[in-house]
Amino acid sequence: MDDAVKGCCAVSRNAGEPAPASAPAAAPSVAGERSNAIFIPGGRSHVGMDNPVIPLDGEGPARSVKLNDYRLEAQTVTIGRFADFVAATGYVSEAERFGWSAVFAGLLPAETEVTGNAPSTPWWVRIDGASWRQPEGPGSSIDDRLDHPVTQVSHADALAFAEWVGGRLPSEAEWERAAHGGVRGRKFAWGNDEPDDETIFCNIWQGTFPHTNTMADGYMGTAPARSFEPNEGGFYNMAGNVWEWTADPYRIRSLSRHAKKRNADAVAANERLLKGGSFLCHISYCYRYRIAARMALTPDSAASNVGFRVAYDA
């Protein structure tokens, strides 16, 4: 990891690092099951907001889109479900094949051996052996968090799981429609009330990032996938907890010089779009737990705060 590939609250793998061998395909004869996929009728919807908070990310202005009927799972895919997928198919995640992944340093015991970091975001460290099985590296366990979102999964890992259950990843427009329920201008999945260090709606950082987390929400890292109140559509944790991979490439819809340069970089790196923010977000550092907020990562990236949920054609 290095400065050139740092993200706001996640980091991409270094460009040019040799890719691991291809993973085995999921066995089509051993299909997985959907988990509470909620029907959303098609029609006109919108993406983004008219008064973007972080314009350089391409959050606005709001644009109209037309959606087909679809279904979206109420929660992110859990560690337990991903373990079932691996057991049924023999799938090997990209982080396992690379042999390392990015871990938030605040989750690590003091004696953990660190093999690298991103200099301008030193809270992100490279840990050999970190993967979905051992999210903080050797010695860490998933036994007590099987109902938490699976993390340390790449875009390819998410696609493979989605194919196993007969689904796909949602588009940005589908993800936002589930989050805002068709209400134009809605800031958060629950409405427009601002969370802070005492007012808790979701799993984000409370305190001074990255040094002090008061854990007023009850969690230092991820929370169970069905934590906190769902929005009126029945969707859990569409703000905070983990960033969610989508089907879309990362692009900014603008003719500005910045957008053209950013889009060229995104194309060169094959960056993919993520939505929702994570447990590391805070208004002072990464104000991206809003519906319109966006983040980019290279598709082979994985981290402590990156997961996904599954969509289906209706």
Score class of each variant (00 low, 15 high):
residue 1 M to F: 09
residue 1 M to S: 11
residue 8 C to D: 05
residue 9 C to W: 00
residue 10 A to Q: 12
residue 16 G to L: 11
residue 24 P to A: 06
residue 35 S to K: 13
residue 44 R to T: 14
residue 45 S to P: 02
residue 47 V to H: 08
residue 54 I to F: 04
residue 60 G to K: 12
residue 61 P to E: 12
residue 64 S to A: 14
residue 64 S to K: 12
residue 67 L to T: 04
residue 79 I to M: 08
residue 83 A to M: 10
residue 85 F to E: 08
residue 87 A to F: 07
residue 88 A to Q: 09
residue 89 T to H: 07
residue 95 A to K: 02
residue 96 E to W: 11
residue 100 W to L: 03
residue 104 F to W: 15
residue 105 A to M: 00
residue 109 P to M: 13
residue 114 V to C: 08
residue 120 S to Q: 11
residue 122 P to I: 09
residue 126 R to N: 13
residue 129 G to Q: 11
residue 130 A to W: 10
residue 130 A to Y: 02
residue 137 G to C: 10
residue 137 G to A: 11
residue 140 S to K: 05
residue 153 V to K: 02
residue 170 P to E: 06
residue 171 S to N: 07
residue 171 S to L: 04
residue 181 G to A: 02
residue 185 G to L: 07
residue 186 R to I: 07
residue 191 G to N: 05
residue 194 E to F: 14
residue 198 E to C: 08
residue 198 E to H: 06
residue 204 I to N: 10
residue 204 I to K: 01
residue 214 T to C: 05
residue 214 T to S: 06
residue 216 A to M: 09
residue 229 E to A: 14
residue 231 N to F: 01
residue 232 E to I: 01
residue 238 M to P: 01
residue 251 R to I: 15
residue 259 A to C: 13
residue 263 N to K: 04
residue 275 K to F: 09
residue 281 C to S: 11
residue 282 H to Y: 09
residue 282 H to M: 07
residue 283 I to H: 06
residue 296 A to Y: 00
residue 298 T to W: 03
residue 300 D to F: 06
residue 301 S to P: 03
residue 303 A to D: 13
residue 306 V to A: 02
residue 310 V to Q: 05
residue 311 A to M: 08
